[in-house]
């Protein structure tokens, strides 16, 4: 991942107080894919700690992966919980829609964790045109590219369902978006 894209994907604040709070918020995981943190995903968009009084007030912005994603509410609660436990008295979490989230923001580390967890990471290529054809998706179990799409829609908005033709295992694929 290029340094420029990395900066867009994970805009960690530069002031010390906000950066410390960012690191805390960044530990919150996606409830649907618990190996990924919201920082890995690029869902954490900004953390701002007010200077007075003594960093007690904090505003966090997150962006939904999909407009209707119900995980947003759980993530919001988890951020509040983590930051409250660390002593921040007044935690606001709100949602931003622009710029729209993209799987391009998923960190390299996140992609590796996803594959190790058994979910094929996004390939970074989006099919185009009214009737599209995507690239082969690699089986996270055996590594074969001989896989078949079972369903374009999966257990959550962000995933599709595949099956490996070699090892016969079904698996989730984190859709390019």
């Amino acid at each position: 991942m290029s340094a420029v894209l990395e900066q867009v994907a994970r805009p960690k604040p530069t002031d010390v107080a906000s950066a410390a709070a960012w690191d805390l918020a960044a530990t919150v995981v996606d409830p649907e894919v618990p190996v990924l943190t919201i920082a890995d995903l690029g869902v954490l968009r900004s953390v701002v700690v007010d200077e007075a009084p003594a960093g007690s007030r904090i505003v966090v912005e997150i962006t939904p992966t999909y407009s209707g994603c119900p995980a947003v509410d759980a993530i919001r609660d988890d951020i509040r919980s983590v930051l409250s436990a660390a002593g921040y008295a007044d935690v606001d979490v709100h949602t931003v829609l622009s710029p729209a989230w993209t799987t391009d923001w998923m960190s390299d580390e996140g992609r590796q964790k996803l594959a190790a967890y058994g979910i094929a990471p996004p390939t970074g290529t989006r099919p185009a045109g009214p009737v599209s054809l995507g690239l082969g998706i690699r089986c996270p179990q055996c590594g074969s590219l001989h896989t078949r799409q079972l369903s374009r829609f999966g257990s959550t908005s962000c995933k599709a369902l595949y099956v490996c033709q070699r090892c016969q295992e079904p698996f989730d694929y984190f859709k390019d978006h």
Partner: peptide, 19 residues
Amino acid sequence: EEDIALGNIALDLIGHARS
């Protein structure tokens, strides 16, 4: 799979509607 597909599409639409 179509249960899931149409449910997923409906969920996206709920998101748009809420906004």
